[in-house]
Design a binder for these strands. Structure first.
Lengths: 221, 221
DNA sequence: TGATTGATTACGGATTCCCGTAAGAATCAA
DNA sequence: TTGATTCTTACGGGAATCCGTAATCAATCA
């Protein structure tokens, strides 16, 4: 089993139970940090002393507080850690349940496992750690399949941009001016209208208000 | 200290660390359930055997899965439990960080403590339990701030009604018809327009999209 | 080069929304 | 009942939107 594990997790209660899970797996040598910067520092120190960690278990989102952090979240933490120590195994343990976000972590960051905080997350985490120790990849069962249920729509950056503008109170007719100022590719009012229309058609949504509600519910904005 | 405590929390990892917190407080007689229905059933059984719980620690949101539940969330669970056993002490332990939501729990449900899942939530929870045991109310420090600081608006049932209709895709001009069908007091289109306008003016909001975003963020709908 | 295709934009009419004004109910007091 | 106040509704002009059509632009390829 892993010899030395670091937990990066801001919630104390979650932190505690992850430690307990590690104990159940017989891992005695473990550290935990509540902030990303602290976690990275520890990784660097251990690496410098040639006593490096061989597993990092980290959350994705860390709440901001008075302690201003250079590293804002788990994704950046993993990137920084891997830059120093490319062989470091990484298990992400987070509430995030968006498939694209998880896909990104596997494809672009090369994480070894993703465990979603959910009903049976402790046993799930245990399984993940065991799988990673055997050089396997792991992801929680309910994030395996493409959740392409029914009418779905793949929101592009442009879509998010214009919807965000609407949410900030920008009138639709003023959006082109903003887009031009920021050198965003299609900037015509017609393009904005067309895009909004195709989104609404794809999702069977009838007005802008319903669209905003949908995006808020799905955490798209 | 409390003699018998029930934990209603769907996340296994959180559940584990709440149990550990109770152990630290010297509470040996504790039960835990992952579903609201199971939790209520246990409360009923214990009450029937005259061995009732004297503290309930519960989450607010429970994820839906194959196990269809009659009781969907913590708020309903507390209401049902209190109906049976009015003296039951209740500590809510949740991610929710919206002040109005927490205010509602204290004012309309009469919970005894609210602990937000955050960085130092384990010690926070411990403090809350100790406070409640001394018949005090408790809420996490970062949720203390006075309710009506900024420009705020007191949403009435009517406001929520029409905003909800918009979110369901109802065109504004069709809202009067719906209101008449349901015998809701002002039903004229002008009244709807005026009301939306006064809300937006009060909150310094410029269009319906921004209003929906605001209401979603504040959990008004 | 010239042609084709697709994306972007411009335009215009129909609809809806916004908002001020005034007319119409309802409530209450004198 | 009368008058006053408030709430509700009706109306209308101007603005914004929706949406289809057509023109323009960009890129690729024969």
């Amino acid at each position: 089993m892993f010899k030395k594990v670091l937990i990066a997790e801001d919630h104390e209660s979650t932190n505690i139970s992850v430690r307990k899970t590690l104990e159940d797996l017989g891992i005695a040598n473990k550290e935990f940090r509540y902030y990303c910067d602290d976690a990275l520092k520890l990784i660097e120190i251990a690496f410098g002393q040639e006593d490096s960690f061989d597993l990092l278990i980290t959350d994705l989102s860390f709440e901001e507080d008075k302690n201003i952090q250079k590293i804002a979240g788990g994704r950046e933490l993993i990137k920084a850690a891997r830059q120093l120590q490319p062989g470091l195994k990484v298990v992400v343990f987070s509430l995030e349940n968006s498939i694209p976000v998880v896909d990104d972590l596997f494809e672009n960051i090369g994480i070894d496992a993703y465990v979603r905080k959910a009903r049976y997350d402790a046993v799930d985490l245990k399984r993940a750690i065991e799988a990673v120790f055997q050089n396997k990849k792991y992801r929680s069962a309910d994030l395996m399949q493409n959740k392409r249920i029914e009418n779905s729509y793949d929101f592009k950056a442009f879509d998010v941009e214009i919807i965000t503008l609407l949410c900030n109170g920008t009138p639709q007719k003023n959006i082109p001016a903003y887009l031009q100022q920021n050198n965003i590719k299609p900037s015509g009012l017609s393009s904005v209208e067309k895009r909004l229309n195709s989104i609404k058609t794809a999702l069977n949504i009838s007005n802008n208000e319903q669209l905003i509600a949908y995006c808020k519910d799905k955490k798209i904005i």
